[in-house]
Simulated scan of single mutants.
Amino acid sequence: MERYKDSVIPPSISDFAPLRGICISEKGSSGRNETSPTDSILKERGRREKMNEKYSVLRSMVPSLFTISKPTREKILYDTVDYIECLEEEIKRLEGIKKLQVQEQKVGKQVSSRLNNQKSAVDITVSSGATFFAIQLPFKPGIITEIVKVFDKHQAEVLEATISVDDQQLLTFTVTIVLGRDGGNTIQKIKEEIIAL
């Protein structure tokens, strides 16, 4: 039998190409439909936009990145880790101050219950940048305002303060403050001015 020859013109490639906008999907070995390249591009674009939003939020929360116009993602991550570590150290420091204050308040309550002569006293504890004052004075109208004016005069940043007056009219004022560079001299001046009230 002789070989068969067809003299018909073969079809062009464009006759078999899919129409624009129509995606031909084939089932892969896993049995699911594979997504078109357009869908993959859109998903990737959406993922990148979400990541950019998250990096922007992260950047807005870290103070060291405020002054940098376009930090790299690596810089954002490193500065964020550093900032979290600083915040953890600050938490430990403040917890230590709080424990100190609780101890000082317990001691202050014991002392105030034993004092009958209403003398003035100012106890000071300085630790890692913060200064704790335990002030005991005879109570009189306006004394709290005068104490606050002394701290304000020396530009002390008050972190926490408590006030109590016992049955013997003895005022106990405890305060934790942060001072500027010349803390040692300022602390002494504050103490002298409060005792003079």
Rank of each mutant, 00 (worst) to 15 (best):
R47D: 12
K98P: 00
E104P: 01
L58C: 06
G108E: 00
V102F: 04
M61T: 08
Y78E: 15
I84V: 15
V107K: 10
G46R: 09
E95D: 14
T72C: 00
V62K: 00
P37A: 11
Y55T: 04
G46W: 04
M61V: 06
F66V: 13
G108S: 14
I91H: 03
S69P: 14
Q101G: 15
S40Q: 11
T72W: 03
Q101C: 13
I68P: 00
E34S: 12
V102P: 02
M51I: 15
C86M: 11
D82R: 13
S40V: 15
K75E: 11
S56V: 08
T67N: 09
N52Q: 11
L100T: 14
S69L: 12
K106I: 14
V81H: 02
I84Y: 01
T72H: 03
P63S: 06
Q101T: 12
S112H: 03
K54F: 07
S64K: 08
Q105D: 06
S69Y: 04
E88Y: 07
G46T: 13
N52P: 02
S64E: 09
E49H: 10
M61G: 05
Q103N: 12
Y78K: 15
V57E: 07
T80E: 00
E34N: 12
K50W: 03
I41Y: 06
P63Q: 03
E90Y: 06
N52S: 10
Y83F: 13
P37C: 09
R47P: 04
K92N: 12
Y78G: 01
M61F: 04
K106W: 03
I84W: 00
T72L: 01
K50H: 06
I97C: 03
D79H: 08
D82N: 15
L65Y: 02
T80L: 01
V102D: 06
R47K: 10
P63H: 05
G96Q: 07
E95Y: 09
L94D: 01
Q105A: 10
Q110L: 14
T35M: 08
V62I: 11
S64H: 03
K70L: 10
C86F: 05
S40N: 10
L100R: 09
E49Q: 11
K43E: 11
E104W: 04
R32G: 04
E89Q: 12
I91M: 04
V107C: 05
D79G: 02
S40L: 12
V111W: 03
K75S: 03
Y55D: 03
R48M: 13
E44C: 12
Q110T: 11
Y55M: 15
E53F: 15
P37T: 09
E44K: 12
R47T: 15
I76F: 02
T80Y: 00
L65Q: 02
G108C: 03
E34R: 14
G108N: 04
V102G: 04
P63Y: 03
V57S: 07
Y78F: 12
T35P: 13
R59A: 00
K109N: 14
P37F: 05
M61E: 08
K43P: 03
Q110D: 13
S113L: 13
R32F: 10
E95H: 09
R73H: 05
Y55S: 04
D39H: 09
E74Y: 08
S113G: 07
